[in-house]
């Protein structure tokens, strides 16, 4: 069978190691049944795979599924056909960004995180949360305040991460990687 060139299906199969295993999906639902986030996804993994096979690429890439994936690999280790489901979720995020088709703000969350790493070389969970929510959900930030105070009083929340010494070296490496990867 030849797949539509440049379709979501074709890209998974040609670009992702072991991506061709997606062809053998039995639609058994073990992935969705095992997924801790399934109930919050607009299409859970099995349903998303049916959409991919049906060629409904726009629905696929606008889905929140892969942004709600917590990368726990529970689906992957249980899949009876050994499909690398978690890796497919990573790949779909990449495809959605590439085509500009994403509807959740999870992308911004990842962006905030990456920005922090590229600035300091290190991250810190709560600083990340604060930054993300201040920018995108100011009201949530207010709700988070009591918890953040609890963390602060226990010395677990810092305002800024430590910047690594050789930030120049790290930037050079990342810039080069982006250049090759583009």
């Amino acid at each position: 069978m030849t797949l539509e060139p440049n379709s979501v299906y074709e890209k998974i199969i040609t670009e992702l190691p072991d991506g061709e295993k997606l062809k053998s999906c039995l639609q058994c639902g073990n992935c969705t049944g095992s997924c801790p986030s399934a109930t919050d996804m607009d299409y859970a993994p099995r349903g998303l795979f049916a959409l991919i096979a049906a060629g409904q690429d726009e629905k696929v890439l606008r889905a929140n599924t892969f942004w709600y994936c917590v990368s726990c690999y529970q689906c992957t280790v249980r899949c009876p056909q050994e499909i690398p489901i978690t890796d497919i979720m990573y790949h779909l995020k990449h495809q959605a960004i590439e085509k500009g088709l994403y509807t959740t703000d999870a992308k911004d969350f990842s962006g905030t995180f990456i920005g922090m790493v590229e600035h300091f070389g290190r991250s810190f969970e709560l600083g990340l949360a604060a930054g993300f929510h201040l920018l995108h959900h100011p009201l949530e930030s207010v709700k988070m305040a009591p918890m953040a105070l609890g963390m602060m009083s226990r010395g677990r929340l810092k305002l800024l991460p430590k910047r690594i010494k050789n930030m120049g070296q790290l930037r050079a490496i990342l810039d080069k990687a982006k250049e090759i990867g583009a």
């Binding site: 917590v70 960004i97 962006g111 995180f113 790493v117 290190r122 982006k178 990867g181």
Partner: peptide
Amino acid sequence: NCCGATEYFSVNQLP
């Protein structure tokens, strides 16, 4: 430096 957690891998593999 940071390991990238799950975020970095999801968006840009090579970096």
